[in-house]
Design a protein around this nucleic acid. Structure first.
Lengths: 201, 201
DNA sequence: AACTATACGGAGGCTGCCTCCACTTAGCAA
DNA sequence: TTGCTAAGTGGAGGCAGCCTCCGTATAGTT
């Protein structure tokens, strides 16, 4: 009941009417562009205007701004999860982890607003609405961490939550700044995890 | 000329009229409370109301929201800078650095909005307006880093900008979340810096 | 007491958020 | 095809916040 308006696409619930699906797609496209241009605070009325629908329609499909942001970036997050698997298959554990961290940061740097999403994912009070997405990325990160920890390459007390918060923080701090700093911060965090594996104090 | 309206207190420019100073103080007090309660996005009109002044007066003293935020937190940042000196005098370099990092994070956690300030300080386009503040904290952090690097306790290629971005990121990621994660992240970053000192790859 | 630079404050114009409901239409059944 | 109706639309309207402008008030001076 909580997710009737949000989750109905072609998947679980009742299939959307043709025009509804068209409008939803148009809004998502307009939102993706607006968020890239102006960040997640872009005007919803402007998005509706760009999409050629009424503001009411936008709200029908996405009751809150967060719902909209979430759907816009869902695909992008899924792609990050896939990347984790691919890297894990193609590289030794520690390298896979590091590469993924760098990709995450680089990716988020290109997409203003990703950051806000992450924050939402970490802290939010409305967790039910996005447990899938949250779960997916935690599984992906957890796998990377487990493999590296299992190989004795990083310390064992780092959770996927830690890492995501850390990466999220790096991205936030550099959202509009120079991106080489982000890479150096990644390197520091990564070394910090390695340090714990070799010698604890 | 750029800072006439902002910086005029009792310091450089022409002294404020008595009523003006009173009002400015009232606005600052109301803003400090509002920012703590509702974050930096608190309503300016509400702040003016709480301060017992008109909205016009608020805008006369603080032409933009950022000006207000900046003045509210200036003292707090200055206190952090002082802490850096005290810690540096009372502890060995690496310990001083770590303690300061932890204090920074804990402090920011208590003050929602500090984070927004930091972001501003790092990225802003209006740098002139706050060069002093920015300079102060960079000097403080730089000193901590230099001493620890000079003692061979951390890697030498970390700049004060890196560290501030890193800490800012940690704070942002944890602005509303559990605070023990922030401490663990600090520990990771700190170890990352130490790792660089011991063995570079 | 008179004067004036300085400061006050809030009305008003604007934009964005969100709700509500009278109208339209896709999809179906006869 | 034709109707029917559940599903969907869209924008007016109420509200709140942002910021500007300018007529009014007063601190400090002469």
């Amino acid at each position: 009941m909580t997710s009737t308006d949000t989750a109905a696409e072609g998947v679980g619930g009742k299939p959307l009417r043709a025009d509804a699906r068209r409008n939803r797609e148009a809004v998502l496209a307009a939102a993706a562009e607006a968020f890239s241009l102006h960040g997640v605070e872009a005007s919803l009325e402007e998005i509706a205007r760009q999409a050629g629908v009424g503001i009411g329609t936008l709200y029908r499909h996405f009751p809150t701004r967060e719902d909209l942001v979430l759907d816009v970036y869902r695909r992008e997050v899924e792609r990050l999860c896939e990347a984790a698997q691919e890297l894990s298959a193609a590289h030794p554990p520690d390298e896979a982890l590091r590469l993924w961290m760098e990709r995450f940061v680089g990716y988020a740097a290109a997409k203003r607003g990703m950051v806000g999403l992450l924050r939402t994912m970490m802290n939010d009070h409305r967790v039910e609405l996005m447990r899938d997405l949250k779960g997916d990325i935690h599984v992906a990160v957890g796998t990377l961490l487990d493999r590296a920890a299992g190989a004795g390459q990083i310390r064992t007390d780092v959770t996927s939550d830690d890492l995501l918060r850390g990466l999220g923080g790096i991205c936030m701090a550099n959202d509009t700044g120079p991106s080489d700093t982000a890479l150096r911060l990644v390197s520091i965090v990564f070394d910090g995890m390695r340090y714990g594996a070799a010698a604890r104090h």
